[in-house]
């Protein structure tokens, strides 16, 4: 839009963009939208493939029954609340640790060690989520887990991490903090390196204290990154499935039953596809609303 000349004489045919875009659009429509429509239809039916009367009745339409059931289901709300609690637990940890790591990586000197640390931070990010769950089960094992050995060094008794509600919650929080703090710190580091060198040098000459430098010079450059972190991590936490599924399957009880794990269980263990579809559609509405918001906030500069 910024070059009106190209609009009048673009040098390409009117339908040229269509040919280039068609494969991607068709693929995303077919694989993304079509199943969604299918789910909307299913969510209005009584559709439990293990329930005999549903099979015989040809999965009858039941109006909004599934939605009413989903919205009045305490477990569904509890899993959403638990997801929120998980988010509110991991975020402060990841922000504080991420900031500390970013400042260490930004500080001059020790070039080799800083480079080494930057490389090391990539490893947690690349580790397959399912394998993170497997490692978590080994580390937090009651009998031969290394987590209990660490506690032992500080004279604390061994704990049945994955067998107790609060232990299991701490365990999945720990693995998430391990895996995602590097992400937060790399984003903060990107913000820190945006501070003009002259400004930072001048400020360092002014004061030897770290706090004013951080507060008045560096923090403003990190704020956009902080918003990005808060938003992207909230999308991630809503998605979080693999690690928790492998580590705890949502248990013990419902101590780690995050919303993804719960919805998966209703659909694929209980096989109530009608209710599961209704829950999925409700989550879809939530995530689409959130993602529209995120995108409006973040990609404003694009046309």
């Amino acid at each position: 839009m910024s070059h009106p000349v190209t609009r009048h004489n673009p040098g390409y045919g009117r339908f040229t963009p269509l040919w280039f875009l068609a494969p991607a659009v068709v693929a995303l429509l077919a694989i993304g939208i079509y199943p969604t429509i299918f789910a909307v239809v299913t969510s209005f039916r009584s559709y439990n493939i293990t329930r005999r009367q549903d099979m015989l009745g040809g999965f009858p339409f039941v109006g909004f029954d599934n939605y009413v059931n989903a919205l009045t289901d305490d477990t569904f709300w509890q899993s959403l609340l638990l997801t929120l609690k998980f988010y509110l637990t991991v975020m402060p940890l990841q922000i504080v640790l991420g900031l500390a790591i970013a400042l260490m990586l930004h500080r001059p000197g020790l070039a080799f060690m800083r480079a080494l640390a930057r490389v090391a931070l990539v490893v947690p990010l690349a580790t397959t989520y399912a394998v993170v769950g497997l490692i978590g089960r080994l580390i937090f094992n009651r009998e031969f887990g290394v987590a209990n050995q660490f506690l032992g060094w500080f004279g604390i008794d061994a704990w049945d991490w994955l067998g107790s509600p609060s232990g299991a919650f701490i365990a999945i929080v720990t693995m998430d903090v391990w895996q995602w703090t590097p992400f937060v710190s790399l984003i903060f580091l990107a913000g820190l390196s945006m501070v003009p060198v002259e400004v930072e040098e001048a400020a360092r000459l002014e004061t030897k204290r770290h706090w004013p430098l951080l507060r008045y010079i560096q923090l403003p450059y990190m704020l956009p990154g902080l918003t990005a972190v808060l938003i992207l991590r909230s999308a991630d936490v809503l998605k979080l499935f693999d690690t928790v599924f492998v580590m705890t399957r949502g248990g013990p009880g419902s101590a780690t039953d995050l919303v993804s794990v719960y919805v998966q269980r209703v659909g694929f263990k209980v096989f109530d596809l009608g209710l599961g579809s209704a829950q999925a559609i409700l989550m879809l509405i939530l995530t689409v609303a959130l993602s529209r918001l995120y995108i409006r906030l973040f990609y404003r500069e694009v046309q």
């Binding site: 993304g32 969604t36 998605k239 499935f241 919303v259 659909g267 989550m283 995530t287 993602s291 995108i295």
Partner: peptide, 12 residues
């Protein structure tokens, strides 16, 4: 941004 679990059941 869509959570994979949302599409899991429909796709199934």
């Amino acid at each position: 941004f869509i959570s994979p679990i949302v599409l899991a059941l429909p796709v199934y």
